[in-house]
Amino acid sequence: MGRRGKRRGDGMTARGLFEWVGAKGRAFVVAAPLAWLTLFFLLPFVVLAKISLSESAIARPPYLPIWEWAEGVLNVSLNFGNYLFLAEDPLYLMAYLGSLKIAAAATVITLLIGYPMAYVIARAPQHRRNILLMLVVLPFWTSFLLRVYAWIGILKGNGVINNVLMSMGVINEPLVLLQTDFAVYLGIVYSYLPFMILPLYATLVKLDEALLEASADLGARPFVTFLTVTLPLSVPGIIAGSLLVFIPAVGEFVIPALLGGPDTLMIGSVLWNEFFSNRDWPVASAVAIVMLVVLVMPIAILQRTQSGKEEAN
């Protein structure tokens, strides 16, 4: 014990300090993102959870505190009524289901469009690959909001599509494209396509060409090779891309608000209404918390399976 203490004593030279930082370096590296997450995710979440358990009031802020200190007595009143309210009113359930349905369908469509694109990019010659990837990322240089607005101009009654079709004589009356579910799907697929393509590309580009040749050599037609080799080996990319599209699509507010019609029921719009139109912060918070839980569950399950797989490897 004494010797160790002594060693520590003369360790306070420059070298000792260096070693100390070296040993703690790991902790520093982990601490930065941890602090970030605590500050910008965990704390807001706790605040939100707290509001969701309070009672709404016409006040500023528009809810009552959940604890009160009066005459040496701490009164804590947790109001679960907001959550019960969500369960009672079918509007919320419908909105959740609507969001999940639209997000899921949009994810599948994005996958169907994005997979061939990622495949072609991954199989393109090196110099062309970078150009194609640039093109995929290029739309990000324009504001997301502007791009969604642009779709209004394309889809509206006297918009680009209808004008072209009418001038060609294909249709006599303008098609109703805007403010439909179709427009919402279109907006989501268009906006989130790069998030599908990039992880898929990353998986496909790593795929060893020799595996495809081996499959062909053993008698598999190109399509069979795709089904038995390429597709199974790109599952990690499919999962990553699908999550990157599905999760933000569930909570999407801008696209249904701008492109969707009155029938398009998505939880993002409901949330917005509760916060800003109804000024019912507690209910809005409850809506947000439930949405978070709905979204976190599948991610947690996925994480488990992924880490399980990595251990197997």
Binding site: D208, E213, A216, D217, V229, P232, L233
Partner: peptide
């Protein structure tokens, strides 16, 4: 004649075993 229609087989240098 494409590879999958030939009665020949190949052992690859990298072995090219299907990892999955």
């Amino acid at each position: 004649v494409p590879p999958h229609k030939r009665d020949t087989n190949m052992m690859f240098q990298s072995y090219a075993l299907f990892p999955h």
